[in-house]
Amino acid sequence: MADWSPTAYLSYTDERSRPFGELVARVRREPASVVDLGCGPGHLTSVVRERWPAARFVGLDASPAMIDRARASDPDGRYELADVRDHAAGRGPAGDADLVISNATLQWVPGHLELLPALAATARQTFAFSVPGNHDAPSHRLLREVAAREPYAAVVGPVERRAVGDPADYLTALAAPGWEVDTWETTYTHVLDGDDPVLRWISATGAQPVLHALDAHDIAHGTDLRARFDADFGAALREAYPRRPYGTPLAFRRVFAVATRTTGQNDEASIA
């Protein structure tokens, strides 16, 4: 997939940031070091700093554009290009930390459920994450349906339904001797403004693989498939998410997990 657009992702910043704040609020320990897996453009670093101002922080992301934006916005911070799987395997640039936290990233990692114990092992105190749980919502069902039509299907192929677990799945994956695990879900109802707000929302996140494929085809062949897809997908979204006098409501389910060590903690903090 082509690189992410930090500018597009930062639209609806308040709505996208809220789950991270609620995740941070459920971390009971006081970390001296924090690793943020999938830090994006660094817009949530301030939430960590406000909660734990003395903690040493490293943000990791696999997107060069996101890391560049984070470094430019926060030149005193530390942001490194890294893959979640490398961090789980101990090959990442950050090393272990007291708190390993992640917001809306793990759903992009194939087989992330099986990876969770290894990720938790890199946390000396707490491993905490949230993932979108809305992949059967109308927005994502319609993405798959419209992309399955010609002429789009020949370009993008089958659109994967991302395998995100329910709270019970994450509890099962993380429950082990020496750990206390808290999992839950929340459905937010965001009220979005402007024209085609749900299209703009999903175009910055879940629809990225489809849109990148269409953009690449247009560049290579001089077609206008991206514009046609936006029109068809936008029309379907407007029907599924009608505008109200107060804005366009978007129900967005999130799944959360906080795993806290209860034995064998090492409180000495260091980030490599």
Rank of each mutant, 00 (worst) to 15 (best):
residue 134 N to L: 14
residue 210 V to M: 11
residue 175 A to W: 10
residue 215 D to T: 01
residue 177 P to M: 00
residue 155 V to Y: 03
residue 119 L to R: 14
residue 181 V to R: 05
residue 125 Q to A: 11
residue 18 R to D: 03
residue 113 L to W: 13
residue 194 G to P: 05
residue 134 N to S: 14
residue 229 F to S: 04
residue 13 T to K: 02
residue 96 D to H: 07
residue 246 Y to P: 03
residue 116 L to K: 13
residue 209 P to E: 11
residue 163 A to Q: 06
residue 196 D to V: 04
residue 46 S to P: 10
residue 58 V to N: 07
residue 120 A to N: 00
residue 272 A to V: 12
residue 153 A to Y: 05
residue 165 G to E: 04
residue 54 A to S: 09
residue 159 V to F: 08
residue 238 R to V: 01
residue 174 L to R: 15
residue 18 R to F: 05
residue 222 G to Y: 06
residue 87 H to Q: 09
residue 175 A to E: 15
residue 38 G to N: 00
residue 184 W to D: 06
residue 164 V to R: 03
residue 131 V to M: 13
residue 123 A to E: 13
residue 259 A to I: 00
residue 20 F to K: 04
residue 101 I to K: 08
residue 270 S to G: 09
residue 113 L to C: 12
residue 78 R to E: 11
residue 90 G to E: 13
residue 152 Y to P: 05
residue 236 A to W: 08
residue 198 V to P: 08
residue 110 P to T: 04
residue 241 Y to R: 09
residue 149 R to C: 06
residue 224 D to A: 15
residue 237 L to S: 04
residue 10 L to V: 08
residue 147 A to V: 07
residue 175 A to H: 14
residue 96 D to W: 03
residue 179 W to C: 05
residue 20 F to E: 07
residue 55 A to S: 10
residue 94 A to L: 06
residue 18 R to C: 04
residue 72 A to H: 13
residue 227 A to L: 09
residue 34 V to G: 02
residue 69 R to F: 09
residue 119 L to W: 06
residue 263 T to F: 13
residue 163 A to Y: 03
residue 84 V to E: 11
residue 213 A to N: 14
residue 84 V to G: 01
residue 73 S to T: 01
residue 194 G to M: 04
residue 2 A to S: 14
residue 211 L to T: 08
residue 112 H to R: 14
residue 69 R to W: 12
residue 57 F to N: 09
residue 236 A to L: 08
residue 223 T to M: 02
residue 71 R to D: 01
residue 204 A to D: 11
